[in-house]
Design a protein around this nucleic acid. Structure first.
Lengths: 145, 145
DNA sequence: CCAACTGGTTGCATCCTCGAACCATCTGGT
DNA sequence: ACCAGATGGTTCGAGGATGCAACCAGTTGG
């Protein structure tokens, strides 16, 4: 590993976090001000349709208590329902409501716009490489929890 | 702009944020638990040696009030001193103390380790491309404030 | 010389996250 | 069948990070 390469990556990562506004936990570009973690939760729930709360916590890398409150918020917005898990009397199954599906779609659109604007500012001939790199990074960032 | 590409980028970005732990504002890998923004502040101050507080706010994309408090914390750790700006009686010039320089160096080492570990997990023949992509992204993420 | 602006600080409100305590429900071994 | 330990959730308390508004002190331009 070349030290210069690492330093460059470190510098670039910091700039990206700042420039993209990742340090502001609230207010994501999802149509309405929506906490990042709730937005991420919506993505996961929407993808699966129904998902165990503990599984959501694992994917979001959040404490179960945090997820519990987060889900309470989402339920308060009328976006998800809590159902009893089939085989397990303890578990909670999260299900997207109709309104939740609509909201998730709207959020996805806004996010798409934001990302499209970002990618618009990278030279066209490097776009594919950048996206690919992002995927590689996401994969490489997995830490043993 | 291909929609599939945007979606892939969006997905990858979300995974990266989660997997890398960017959603935890406190606790950065800098030797000791250090808030992300304070760590970034240290990087900027260390790079410049001395920097105006308002300039720090601009670079960190934070409200001046937030920076004021942030700097108070850093001063409390004994890492920076507040000096009067030369030509301007209002301004504050931030200067790294000796201890601050040491701390900044230590933090840089820890960050380097973390980044090196991350890059270690990306295939060697793509490392350069990934770092390059990160730089492009950081550049592209600049929003008109 | 005064109005408008700029840099900082402080107070207030909001939000996010974690750990601990607690409860209910499995699971595995005896 | 029973009990100890693990697992999934909820609630409570505490700690941090951030923004906005109000306020003060200097600066600038007309």
């Amino acid at each position: 590993m070349q030290s210069g390469e690492t330093d460059a990556a470190q510098e670039a990562l910091m700039r990206f976090v700042r420039n993209f506004g990742l340090h502001q936990p609230d207010r994501t570009p999802c149509g309405q001000p929506l906490p990042v973690s709730e937005a991420h939760a919506m993505v996961e729930i929407a993808r699966e349709g129904r998902i165990r709360q503990v599984e959501l916590a694992r994917r979001l890398r959040l404490e179960k208590s945090t997820v519990s409150r987060l889900v309470t918020n989402l339920a308060g917005r009328g976006w998800v329902d809590r159902e009893a898990a089939d085989g397990d009397g303890r578990g909670v199954l999260l299900v997207l409501t109709e309104a939740g599906a609509t909201a998730a779609a709207r959020q996805a659109d806004s996010r798409r716009d934001r990302l499209a604007a970002l990618l618009d500012r990278v030279p066209e001939d490097q776009r594919a490489a950048v996206v690919r790199a992002l995927q590689i990074l996401a994969e490489a960032a997995v830490e043993p929890s």
